[in-house]
Computed example of a mutant assay.
Amino acid sequence: MNRLLIVRHGESEWNAVRRLQGHADIELLQHGRNQALALRATVQALSPELVATSDLKRARDTAILLGFDDAEPLNDLREHDVGDWTGQAIKDIQTLNGDAYVKWRAGLFTPPGGESWAEFQARTKGAILRLAEKTSNTLLVVAHGGVVRALLETFLDLTPRRTIPVGTASLTVLRCNNGNHADMRLELFNYSPTGPRLDAPD
């Protein structure tokens, strides 16, 4: 692999009302479908050789809308499992326990019944390294905002407390220096052809 493209899925029903999704299998809104279609030409122009997607419907459908019907679905590319917080409104979590939410967003707190940040990082890193072995060129992964943040920390040492929420249907690009996965460079972050979204939902 010489370049890693990461796309967050388009806006879903729960993104729109700012509910944490985790592993819940939530549908895209029509707006989210339109976002993915708007990004399609940009991603196609980068000519990914290998394409994989989270097995959750919002990511799989985004991959299809980008033009990759045959993207390999992988459960290791699922969003961060937030356990008992699944389906809860972010504002309600913040009201009840704002400190825990801030720590979770920084990778320092695990919701009850959820997945630790370290477990999540290890899961997503393993998926990327296995996929990287299958191509010497460009790998495209269609996944989730948490996956983007986890991979930025894994490959760039950029911790989640240092990144804003990733926009829906946005593109982030990492390049391997001389094909070395341990020496990644950030080429693009949070790109959307319709303009940046600076208040994106987690």
Rank of each mutant, 00 (worst) to 15 (best):
V166M: 14
I128A: 07
Q44Y: 04
T138D: 03
G179Q: 01
V102G: 07
T194N: 12
K103E: 07
N180P: 02
P193K: 00
R123W: 01
D183A: 10
K91P: 09
N34P: 12
P193N: 00
L66Q: 00
R33M: 12
E49D: 12
D81Q: 03
K103V: 11
A89E: 09
P48F: 04
D81V: 02
S47D: 09
S54K: 01
I164C: 12
F189V: 12
L56T: 05
A52W: 07
L140P: 08
V166W: 02
G22M: 11
A150E: 08
C176R: 10
R60P: 15
R123K: 04
F120W: 06
R161F: 14
P112E: 00
P201V: 06
L77Q: 03
R175Q: 14
E11C: 03
L50P: 00
G126K: 06
V43Q: 00
G83R: 01
L28N: 03
K91G: 12
A89I: 10
I26K: 05
G22T: 10
F189T: 10
H23I: 14
A150T: 10
G32A: 04
W104R: 06
G146S: 06
N97Y: 11
I26M: 04
A63R: 00
T62N: 01
S136I: 15
L158N: 03
Q88L: 11
V51T: 05
L5G: 14
C176E: 08
D157C: 08
V7Y: 03
L29F: 05
N180F: 12
W85R: 10
L108P: 00
V142N: 02
L5P: 15
R105G: 06
L5Q: 06
D202C: 14
L158E: 04
F68A: 11
L140Q: 03
G107Y: 04
A122M: 13
T53N: 04
H181M: 15
A182W: 12
G113E: 00
R161K: 15
Q121K: 09
S116L: 05
L5N: 10
K125I: 15
D202Q: 13
T194Y: 08
E187D: 08
R130P: 00
N178I: 13
N2V: 12
K57H: 13
V147L: 02
D99H: 07
R19I: 13
A89D: 10
A118C: 09
P111C: 14
V142H: 01
R40E: 06
R3N: 05
R130Q: 08
I26D: 00
